[in-house]
Design a protein around this nucleic acid. Structure first.
Lengths: 215, 215
DNA sequence: GGCAAAGTTGCACGCTCTGCAGTAATCGGT
DNA sequence: ACCGATTACTGCAGAGCGTGCAACTTTGCC
């Protein structure tokens, strides 16, 4: 069990661990706020460290670079797919739970907050951020794979299935969110986002067998 | 049409464009060789630029950082999924073509060359490379989405389907390759890689409905 | 209270990465 | 073949990044 999951599960951890998590959260929060304010490319590590009230050297104990911190801050504002998935009943079909978890993600506070959505759009205009967003998704994918393995009683070390399910679900959610965020501002409707998620998981459930009608 | 696809299709382009492509290839090839030799973290942009016989300043006209160049060099050694897909008959089921394309990728020269495979494993030990590998895959995913849209006669701007299919196929291929590369050295058998691809696309075709037996 | 482990931090320094501007190569028209 | 426009290469300066080392502080455990 990771420290984060210990916290999630309400288990006691020491002051040292709690302070580490607090510092990491302070840094990623500062990174997000300041990258929105100054731009991803222009914000400096020194500004982020100052805002989080730690030394620049300390910043690099937590993150490899500012983009990693920004991505962490951005993802922290949304409901985690793995947390949503883990909280659902284990006796329903797997893809149903993943669809429901994805719906919990996209109906969370972040995607309904217009300012937050506009920030998401703004920071994603910086090409330097994409690799680190993808890496952050990959981190969540690993956690989701473990949760799928636990749920299906399979050994993620031996079986490809949990990795494939996690990668597919994360890919589906990612393309939906990317498409929605890239839409014109008047189309940023929460209902449409949920509809895209439904359509995505419906397509996955039927094995991507039916393309939409030709234009 | 991009310059690269012009080249792929054998269309004439000028000396300037050809020299740009040659410079980019020289840089990414140098990046790969030198990162294998020195380590991803230790190789410098100056070493890469010198090896490619260009100025350091010129390096940054092509790549944002050395990791991006290394990822480009690494991917360039493998068959491109989109090229493989585009070369297949358009009248068979979509997922069948994607499976066949993925098989063409994993049965290409790169995955059968033990030295190349060992290089892949070595450079992937550097955490700093992962975000840029993922970004390079995302670039290939965009091209694949366009190819899927063209093949299914759908408008990738309007329909989510091509993006979803491309993201899913790339995710499936990625987890297979990642798993295979992470296996013990005596399990790096080409037949097993192809089997993993078959299993992956079989699972996708049936909508990930059946987990493997519980352990 | 004391010791070991872990975390913070300053410092020095090699390297990254960019904007600017001068120079060179390429392209297209005449 | 020449010429002008466009594009690419490159050196330079400099701001900022990112790391290893070591001193200091905090935390946990006995």
């Amino acid at each position: 069990m990771t420290v984060v999951s210990a916290v999630v599960e309400g288990e006691a951890i020491g002051r040292r661990e709690r302070k580490k998590l607090a510092t990491r959260a302070a840094l990623s929060g500062a990174a997000l706020r300041l990258s929105v304010e100054h731009g991803v490319d222009r914000v400096t590590v020194e500004q982020i460290a100052d805002e989080a009230d730690v030394a620049v050297r300390t910043f690099f104990n937590y993150f490899s670079n500012k983009e990693e911190a920004i991505a962490a801050g951005d993802l922290a504002t949304t409901v985690s797919l793995v947390e949503a998935f883990t909280g659902l009943p284990a006796d329903e079909p797997l893809l149903d739970s993943l669809r429901e978890a994805a719906l919990l993600v996209v109906t969370g506070d972040a995607y309904r907050d217009r300012d937050r959505v506009e920030e998401m759009r703004a920071i994603r205009r910086a090409p330097a951020l994409l690799p680190h967003l993808l890496a952050a998704y990959a981190e969540q994918e690993r956690a989701l794979s473990a949760a799928v393995a636990s749920r299906t009683g399979t050994d993620a070390e031996k079986e490809l299935f949990p990795d494939l399910v996690a990668a597919t679900a994360m890919a589906g959610l990612r393309v939906v969110v990317q498409r929605w965020l890239a839409a014109p501002a008047d189309e940023l409707d929460g209902t449409r986002l949920a509809e895209l998620v439904e359509a995505t998981f419906a397509q996955l459930a039927e094995g991507l067998a039916t393309p939409p009608p030709r234009r």
